[in-house]
Design a protein around this nucleic acid. Sequence first.
DNA 1: TATGAATGAGGTTTCATTCAT
DNA 2: AATGAATGAAACCTCATTCAT
Lengths: 223, 223, 223, 223
Amino acid sequence: MPDQIKSKVDDPELVLRRRRQLADAAVELFSARGYHSTTIRDIAEHAEVSIGLIYQYVQDKEDLLFLALLQVLDSYKDQIPLALEGVAEPLERFCTAVRRYCRVNGESVAATVLAYRETKSLRKERRNLIKQKEVETNELIAACIRDCVEAGLFVDVDVEMFTYQIVMFSHAWALKAWRFSQEMDVEEYVDRGLRLMLRGVLTGRGERQLKSARCCGAWEAGA
Amino acid sequence: MPDQIKSKVDDPELVLRRRRQLADAAVELFSARGYHSTTIRDIAEHAEVSIGLIYQYVQDKEDLLFLALLQVLDSYKDQIPLALEGVAEPLERFCTAVRRYCRVNGESVAATVLAYRETKSLRKERRNLIKQKEVETNELIAACIRDCVEAGLFVDVDVEMFTYQIVMFSHAWALKAWRFSQEMDVEEYVDRGLRLMLRGVLTGRGERQLKSARCCGAWEAGA
Amino acid sequence: MPDQIKSKVDDPELVLRRRRQLADAAVELFSARGYHSTTIRDIAEHAEVSIGLIYQYVQDKEDLLFLALLQVLDSYKDQIPLALEGVAEPLERFCTAVRRYCRVNGESVAATVLAYRETKSLRKERRNLIKQKEVETNELIAACIRDCVEAGLFVDVDVEMFTYQIVMFSHAWALKAWRFSQEMDVEEYVDRGLRLMLRGVLTGRGERQLKSARCCGAWEAGA
Amino acid sequence: MPDQIKSKVDDPELVLRRRRQLADAAVELFSARGYHSTTIRDIAEHAEVSIGLIYQYVQDKEDLLFLALLQVLDSYKDQIPLALEGVAEPLERFCTAVRRYCRVNGESVAATVLAYRETKSLRKERRNLIKQKEVETNELIAACIRDCVEAGLFVDVDVEMFTYQIVMFSHAWALKAWRFSQEMDVEEYVDRGLRLMLRGVLTGRGERQLKSARCCGAWEAGA
DNA sequence: TATGAATGAGGTTTCATTCAT
DNA sequence: AATGAATGAAACCTCATTCAT
């Protein structure tokens, strides 16, 4: 997907490998120190390559940010379908998707924050591409919601609004990590969050399904 | 509140006036271009003062960021109590608080985003001070929620979780403005959001109260 | 004339002074080492200012080249009228102009060569401005020629061609200095050159005038 | 002739072929963009070889410049004798030589300018070698002049001076192309130039010879 | 108190050259 | 003989900060 970035190196496989190497270093450093406070030299050292090498695979520093953000966003988009494989029951799919999304965010809090902080440093065209990725990820959640509605497990909810509620809930774990992470872990966070949010959308059938299937992890004394 | 920032000027009133002048310029420019891409010269020109003058009231660039963020955060904390003045009924207070919070965010989307983007550029001690401000604002919302619970209008909800749900909902209007603002305005956003979120927390009494009081703006066919 | 170059300093007199200072250093170094081989640091050191200062008065390195070339070209355009002050007789004016032009070139061989070498490094708009200056200088020579023709001292010569012959003759002293300067000095160069070139254009009257007036320096055994 | 440049390849014929290939690319690019603005990569691409290959036949970038300049200078030196083949009459030989020299310059204006611009970028030893080449070319013209003098067609002119007048006249077509080429073509340039310059040197016999032989192209209403 | 010219460390980027294949 | 990925010194330029006025 990192097309459109021009490289001075021909071998496409090498380009892919090097770019991943650079993106890894970039995600780590940009996340930790921010885009502007990280120097190209920092990245070169962290990736254990020379400064010159970077400019064989990338045209400027902004390209590195783009590469880093793409890597983060893609990892989100890839994880959810992976988690849903083999899960059929709609409510379970929904809970699984949310849980996985939160976990991914939780594992790379810094990267999620990076996306929020630095997307604006990209030029418009690329900013839009990044937003497009986010929309695609959101759609994975929205689909789960729609399935639950169709299966009569959710009331006829405002899908768009509910999707964003879920998304923001997930991101909040990263954005407000300083607040939450000292009180609970991701699992508890998801449990408490789902309990709160599901209450507003479950039908009677949905509630029964939820209890019988115990689909969403620790659900001892549900609502 | 802008204590701890050392000034070379004695007259405390002048210091206050100048700092507001600088903070205004800083909020505007940092919001528009980001902290690192804004130069001291930019701010001097925008505030119509000399570069030298800035350093009479501020020790370094980070001080300006701190000033700017304080200004933004304070405006949030001031607006909610103002809106609640004269409103007594708990559910109405809750709705009013949420509505006002969203509106403030809506009016200065850029400033809200600024807080998310650049807080990390502050040194830890100040970052904590900013977070403290946010917690104080959140507490205003949390209080409204607790009142509703005590009045039997809300079920015995997870107050902390619900507070953050509200807060993130409000911030989302700013953070995802690119998505929402082309489909609806703040008012519709709040209505749709409240409808969704309230469904999960209202008691029977709460629901009746909501309908009778029509406290929360356009509420055609509520839950 | 160094307008259109934007400065970050307001005081126009200071701007003028600093720019002359920078141009002096630039002419010297660019002449000696060439434009590309001279670094900004070199110029800063030679002008005894900081690197930063340069960028207060100039936007980039090309501006320095422009400044340098303007300075060189202007000195040419200024010297000829100065030398002609008080000289009335047309043939004498012609000889004086040529002599002075060669001398100016001779005094700053390196600068003349600079104009030939580096004008192409300017962007088109400025390159044209430089060419315009040259045309203006040439016109000073052309006017002397026309006066001689009108006074019946020169035959009805191809003025444009003759002007360029004179100009190239003058520049040749600089461009081919490596060849000439080890055999003669400027004065001899001018004498020999004028003798050759005048032979083709003088009328009978012109020849007599030339001898009687001995206007053109050492003119022992004229044509 | 490109001796003294060390090559890592043994086969002398291959060396010659490759070096011509590189010199062609170098002349073209150095002429168009200048020496310093042309990268080795540019030349490799233009010559359709790899960067590494260049360094098999050349030690550094300056070698390429040397190669390029040699190629240009040699073409000058070769063309004149070629044009003079079969021409016997001294005045005709002179005119033919001048005409051909101007034409060669006219056909590769950029290359001529290259010689003026970039010779200084060579190290002294090589710069002298280039100058030597120029002197040799000049000698071809000087010989023609001397023949005319000996044949009583030219007065006892200052040969060295006149030679340089011719040379500079020829180069001027390239150096001042921006001025001349929009008013006339090379042929007209030579005609007008020769008419002017010959007037000063022709004897009575020379004039008659010129008219009778019409040796120098379009010579309608000569001196 | 206010100004703005001056400073220079440090950032990004380029590109001639090397060397393992 | 030919390739081209890798290197890193060195260039240009920015901008936070100081200080004499």
